[in-house]
Design a protein around this nucleic acid. Structure first.
Length: 261
DNA sequence: TCGATCCTGTAG
DNA sequence: CTACAGGATCGA
């Protein structure tokens, strides 16, 4: 259930617990989710580096190629003390030489795991927490676009890492109607949107790092207090009007009709 | 740019 | 039973 902050938390934990570890062998439990000869590439390979690009996780192997993991909607990747301890939704396990295991779990099985060459790694847009992401850059990115603001924010090729929740939250904070053509926003609004994105994502990384990255399954607990997501019919925390829901790109968008005019 | 699709689980 | 789920891709 990850957007960028949750993926970041997963990566941090993997780095702390398994970077430098050696994989004895990999077991693919659901072949339809995997691409490439992963079992061959992982045999006695060291996990040299854990990298994140947007929502993509890249596990660099000493054998040369890179394991690309995408958690999609319900995936998770974590270390267990015993590689034989597997839940039913485990889709792949990387058995380490010390007996632990890196488990790729995904009840819904929408996630993907693929073996890539170093020169064909996924490219995504700017990370919202990187120094290169500025209000000026955002203004350039939206220029000329007629797309609804919500869909623009969810486009991983523009700004990477926002999903359905944080896109809605950022738009609320910026006071922007999610249907508004993003290219029609004026400069001050864009600056406010920039600020909102950075604040929402920074807060989410902090809370995710704290609770999402505990051992084992994901914990569906308090994330940062959400202003609009999944709050249809509930009063807006600012103006008390009921939160509205509409469909955009086949997904639900939650917003306040008054605060986001 | 929209809708269908990939899967399974859960809430209503 | 239906609707929907924090994602992405494909074809019309």
């Amino acid at each position: 259930m990850p957007e960028m902050p949750e993926v970041e938390a997963v990566c941090r934990r993997l780095r702390a617990e398994a970077e430098g570890a050696t994989i004895r062998r990999a077991r693919i439990l659901r072949p339809s989710m995997a691409k490439g000869d992963i079992e061959e590439a992982c045999r006695k390979a060291r996990l040299t580096r854990v990298e994140r690009r947007g929502k993509n996780i890249l596990l660099h192997l000493s054998s040369g190629p890179v394991l690309h993991v995408h958690l999609r909607m319900t995936g998770n990747l974590y270390v267990t003390v015993d590689h034989r301890m597997l839940v039913t939704s485990a889709r792949a396990v990387f058995e380490l030489t010390d007996g632990r295991g890196i488990v790729f779990e995904d009840p819904r099985a929408l996630g993907r795991i693929a073996l890539l060459e170093r020169d064909s790694l996924p490219e995504v847009g700017l990370d919202p927490l990187s120094p290169e992401f500025t209000a000026e850059v955002l203004a350039l990115l939206v220029r000329g676009s007629k797309r609804p603001a919500k869909l623009f924010l969810m486009d991983q090729d523009k700004v990477s890492g926002l999903g359905n929740i944080y896109a809605a939250e950022a738009l609320f904070r910026a006071g922007i109607d999610p249907r508004r053509a993003v290219g029609s926003l004026r400069r001050p609004r864009i600056a406010r949107l920039y600020q909102a994105i950075v604040e929402v994502m920074r807060a989410a990384v902090e809370t995710s790092d704290r609770l999402y990255s505990s051992p084992g399954r994901l914990i569906e607990a308090e994330r940062q207090e959400l202003m609009v997501y999944d709050r249809e019919g509930e009063p807006c925390r600012v103006c008390r009007r009921p939160i509205l829901r509409l469909a955009q790109g086949g997904r639900s968008t939650y917003f306040c009709g008054k605060c986001q005019g």
